Amino acid sequence: MADTSSRAGSPATPDTDLIVIGGGPSGCSAARMAASVGMRSVLIEPESLCRNLYRIPALNNVLGGYTSGPELADSIATELKNTELCRLELGRRATELRADDDHTTVTLETGARLTAPYAIVATGVGPLQPRDTPWITAPFDLPLPPLWQADAYDAEGRTLLVLGGDRTIGTFLRAHPTTPTRLVVVYPESDDYKIEEIRDDPRVTLRPVEHVTLHLSEDAATADIVDRSGKRLTVTADAVYLSIGNAPTAPSGDIVRDTAGYCLPSAQHPRVIVAGDLRSARFQRIMTALGSGSEAALHAYYAARELLNGDAN
């Protein structure tokens, strides 16, 4: 558990009932749920609300009839901006979260501080690069684009080498169902459970690997592969994209992380509630993020009324 010792006295008047860090689906649903039970909140987001949803051209796993990320994002953003009990702090980044016996304090990059009895951390994850994974050898300063940034023009009639088997591949294929392309997906054992949804797509060639060494030229990509039987082979492609997953992006301070950087809800200070993709790599879905954010707000609501014996987790 995080250190629960008090660093300072309780603020005379907290700025709000609840601070929400992160403006993705989880953070937005937390603020909306909080408002529905009469709690004031301040939502802190360094960019725009649900910004990553605008990069998902096709959806098939959310309620409400939404078929694209931008459509869902516009709906969420419009609703939240019309939520009277939620104050939006857009263009602001939370740099530190501190938890004391009776309140939390969030410091912004401007140096300003906000206080509330509870804070929800829903900052989600950011894309990994080859240097972050032990199974890929590539130039250290090589920045590669994630697959979700590719469009039909990038893929049509071309062979794309995809590093990793993360679920963005399925999203890409659904978004471009008729685009003639070939994806050569090389992935480690840890991604085995992720590739079932793309296994039967005729445009995909799956290559389970132990290690990949990447070489790039101006007009081609080459990968020297060691497969799981120890066999060596070389794959060439027109371009290379990433689908190796993400890393948690929680602010510094009183947040407990596991060895991979994820923040298990049960390990946190009682006044810090973790929601959304930040909890685990296994539950990174829009629907689970929405539900997690709503549940986090209700935890704060009940804990504030001592209906959870003071434990918000």
Rank of each mutant, 00 (worst) to 15 (best):
59 L>H: 10
77 A>K: 12
47 E>H: 00
48 S>A: 14
77 A>I: 12
27 G>S: 06
68 S>D: 04
21 I>T: 03
92 R>V: 09
63 L>F: 14
23 G>L: 08
31 A>Q: 12
36 S>F: 01
70 P>N: 08
35 A>I: 06
38 G>A: 07
72 L>E: 08
35 A>P: 06
46 P>I: 02
28 C>P: 11
11 P>L: 01
12 A>L: 11
67 T>E: 13
73 A>I: 05
19 I>F: 02
59 L>W: 08
11 P>S: 12
37 V>I: 06
80 L>H: 06
82 N>F: 07
28 C>Y: 00
14 P>V: 02
44 I>C: 06
35 A>K: 07
19 I>G: 02
28 C>F: 08
52 N>F: 08
50 C>Y: 14
8 A>R: 05
84 E>M: 01
79 E>R: 15
69 G>N: 12
3 D>C: 03
81 K>Y: 02
42 V>E: 13
38 G>R: 04
34 A>T: 04
90 L>P: 06
24 G>D: 14
58 A>W: 13
53 L>H: 13
33 M>T: 15
52 N>C: 09
95 T>M: 03
73 A>W: 01
56 I>Q: 07
76 I>E: 04
3 D>Q: 03
80 L>D: 14
67 T>S: 06
56 I>H: 02
91 G>Y: 14
4 T>N: 07
3 D>T: 04
51 R>A: 10
55 R>I: 01
54 Y>C: 04
34 A>R: 03
85 L>C: 10
16 T>I: 12
12 A>Y: 10
36 S>Q: 03
4 T>I: 15
12 A>Q: 10
68 S>I: 09
35 A>Q: 06
27 G>T: 09
68 S>A: 08
61 N>L: 14
62 V>G: 07
85 L>I: 02
25 P>M: 07
72 L>F: 14
68 S>E: 15
4 T>Y: 05
67 T>V: 11
14 P>Q: 13
47 E>P: 06
48 S>C: 05
43 L>Q: 15
93 R>E: 00
26 S>I: 10
94 A>V: 08
36 S>I: 00
42 V>C: 01
75 S>P: 10
78 T>A: 00
92 R>N: 12
19 I>V: 13
52 N>Q: 15
9 G>L: 13
23 G>A: 08
48 S>I: 13
62 V>W: 10
6 S>W: 00
37 V>Q: 03
10 S>R: 15
77 A>D: 11
64 G>K: 00
31 A>I: 09
76 I>S: 03
21 I>W: 11
85 L>M: 09
67 T>H: 14
16 T>N: 10
20 V>D: 15
38 G>I: 06
60 N>C: 02
16 T>H: 01
81 K>W: 04
65 G>D: 01
96 E>P: 02
83 T>S: 14
32 R>T: 05
28 C>H: 04
22 G>P: 06
56 I>L: 12
85 L>E: 15
46 P>M: 04
70 P>E: 14
59 L>T: 11
9 G>D: 12
49 L>N: 12
90 L>G: 11
4 T>F: 05
57 P>H: 00
31 A>P: 11
9 G>K: 13
96 E>Q: 12
89 E>T: 00
64 G>D: 08
